[in-house]
Design a protein around this nucleic acid. Sequence first.
DNA 1: CGGGTTTGACCAGCGC
DNA 2: GCGCTGGTCAAACCCG
Length: 159
Amino acid sequence: MENYPILFPSSTSFHSPRLALSPSDTISNGQVFLGLQDENNVPASHASREKEGNPSKKKEKKVRKPRYAFRTRSQIDILDDGFRWRKYGQKAVKNNRFPRSYYRCTHQGCDVKKQVQRLSMDETIVVTTYEGVHSHPVDKPNDNFEDILNQMKIYSSFQ
DNA sequence: CGGGTTTGACCAGCGC
DNA sequence: GCGCTGGTCAAACCCG
């Protein structure tokens, strides 16, 4: 997996049914919403890192949570969307000078993940991929972003 | 001292 | 089957 199927700004066909944002719409802190895409059939490789080994004990289902990728134009990688994230990994991506960072929501019982990655072609673009839906209110309500995340909730609830 | 970050290792999936 | 690559773990480290 090299690139997420994110719709590019050049494609005029992308239009989120719920998030009525156009590519030129700006979000609170000057960020630009450029695209959104969900992905349903992500192969689940649930890391059952049991050393003693239960290789074929539990059969986790193969479908991961839907993922939502969108781009923002920002100088900084870390988008403060109101949730508390803990970084749990960083990997260098091929064909990309910039590493990809993996974050996880620190709320109890909330296993929402996100990964942040900068585009090698345009380092001013930051791609943030959310995986899962928050099942709790926002920690730090952040004007517009709360709305957007709430709408993302709605958007994902019919899958 | 507690919570978050860094970083190398590990593992599984996939392509060749 | 092997090697590459992405995703995750976890111990060490850092910082308020």
